[in-house]
């Protein structure tokens, strides 16, 4: 089994609080992965507000690092045999309904 980090990106303007239904959908998704015994770490959400970006030359800007209007909202770690299987798990996430996306990255363990 390999481990993959699923990184959630959302649009900058979607920092409204998720509805109870959306929360329930997310929980169902994550619990569905856990029920297959493929959840390694339930990860964390990353605050969009308490965020700074540090750049070369002592430049510190407010807010998370953004590429266009997207920022990283959180992550979880799963274990699957292949990256394709991890991608299949990601596809069922409700994030796509609100214009977000998921980056899937294999974890390379340091010795």
């Amino acid at each position: 089994m390999k481990e993959f980090v699923l990184i959630f990106r959302v649009n900058g303007n979607s920092d409204v609080k998720p509805s109870p239904e959306q929360m329930q959908e997310r929980m169902n998704w994550m619990a569905g992965i856990a029920a297959q015994n493929k959840l390694v770490d339930k990860g964390n959400s990353l605050s969009p507000v308490s965020a700074k970006t540090v750049k070369p030359g002592n430049v510190v800007t407010d807010g998370p690092y953004t590429e266009i209007k997207e920022f990283i909202a959180g992550y979880i770690i799963v274990k699957t045999a292949t990256i394709d299987e991890a991608v299949e798990l990601a596809k069922a996430n409700p994030i796509f309904k609100t214009g977000g996306n998921i980056e899937v990255r294999e974890v390379i363990k340091r010795d």
Partner: peptide, 25 residues
Amino acid sequence: WQHILQLYNQLIIMAYSPVTALNRT
């Protein structure tokens, strides 16, 4: 059953077991 499902969701995320997985389903 909504409440029960939410509790099973938390339980399966906390600790995997086949019985919990099946009860959650």
